[in-house]
Design a protein around this nucleic acid. Structure first.
Lengths: 204, 204
DNA sequence: TGCTAAGTGGAGACCCCCGTCCACTTGAGG
DNA sequence: CCTCAAGTGGACGGGGGTCTCCACTTAGCA
């Protein structure tokens, strides 16, 4: 029954926008465990208003991070378009990890909603990434034993950093990613990492 | 007023031990957010018993992980004694990361209580690690731009994996650590990672 | 065996959170 | 300007968490 934003009353539309802005801000700062009441208070509305627009906390989270998901998506698209597959791979990893580091809630939202994302989109993105990995290997820049699931590994590990205060998190993330990318380069594979792992069990 | 375990009544001592065992088990499986009531139930005691021995949930956590902290400590001691500094460094990182991956609660307990650890112990350990890093650099096996704070980075990133089911977490952690250690080796520093970061602000 | 301090279990006080309900207010078309 | 559907706020129900209180039980000693 929730009306489209376009056909809401002017004041309601404004409130909705303010709620979303505040939610993004607080989720980024304090993570998803920030209470609905806090968002409502900071947005200067009552909880009822909030629940009228977003019937569930989850729905607010999804809406709040839609933008970031789109950024991820387009980062991946850019990577796929890059004629230099290794650069594409490197760049997409750097971009997404930076997003994670900047936004404490993003990681959680990402992990929580990844299995629920419309599977067509998710699968398409994943297949794209797998192809990108293959191209990067073929170009000789990515080590041959790199697994696409290593992306998941990077994202989860990097996500751990988002408990830190934002500025520290960004610096830490950049350093971590730099270290990892260095290992992913072909030619450095002196010690092959152990057993392939089945992270696909987790992020379906 | 809590008596020493040695001078408690026999049944009480037994209960205390069972509570601790159960707590370790559940913290490992489900993380620190497992309710006190669940621990009590599984240990076959009432909550009051639990609170009589451990006045606070935090105190139970600290006690439950004392053993693991000791293991960390001795892992570091072993590393310092190793004549091959690089092997010592590698091994200590592998050991602690494995502990983290095996025990979902450990990471959280470690992070939460690190600043509160008796500072003498903590500082001694830290200074030892700094010395180890220097020796490993001098031996030519560790890259020169490695910072001792990179240990913190590894621990936090690796800690992020502990949200995964244990078996997956272990495999993932081993792979992550293998990748990172490969980057830490001297000779691979083709791309220097960016800015040094001030993680000491966090775990200082 | 009987006494007593130590030990115990479960009810419940208190708090925080999500989400609902309902009486009141207000934007905007006629 | 008047009407009323859309919008709103705050109280409240329900659930789950930590920790306390107190009447009852029991180990262990004389």
């Amino acid at each position: 029954m929730t009306a489209e934003p376009s056909q809401m009353r002017a004041d309601a539309r404004e409130n909705r926008a303010r709620v979303l802005a505040v939610a993004r801000e607080l989720f980024a700062e304090r993570g998803l465990e920030v209470p609905m009441a806090a968002i409502a208070r900071r947005a200067g509305v009552g909880v009822a208003t909030l629940y009228r627009r977003f019937p569930t906390k989850d729905s607010l989270v999804v809406e709040a991070f839609a933008e970031q998901f789109a950024v991820c998506q387009s980062a991946m698209d850019d990577a796929l378009k890059d004629p230099d597959a290794w650069r594409g791979l490197r760049t997409v990893i750097e971009k997404v990890c930076l997003l994670q580091a900047c936004d404490r809630g993003f990681t959680a939202a990402f992990m929580a909603s990844f299995p629920d994302l419309h599977s067509e989109v998710r699968d398409r993105t994943w297949l794209g990434f797998v192809a990108l990995v293959q191209r990067a290997k073929d170009s000789g820049h990515l080590r041959a034993d790199f697994s696409p699931h290593d992306l998941t590994l990077v994202l989860i590990a990097n996500g751990g950093l988002s408990t830190l205060p934002v500025e520290v998190a960004v610096a830490a993330s950049q350093r971590l990613v730099a270290y990892l990318l260095e290992s992913f380069r072909a030619g450095t594979d002196v010690l092959p990492p152990p057993v392939p792992l089945s992270l696909d069990l987790v992020l379906g």
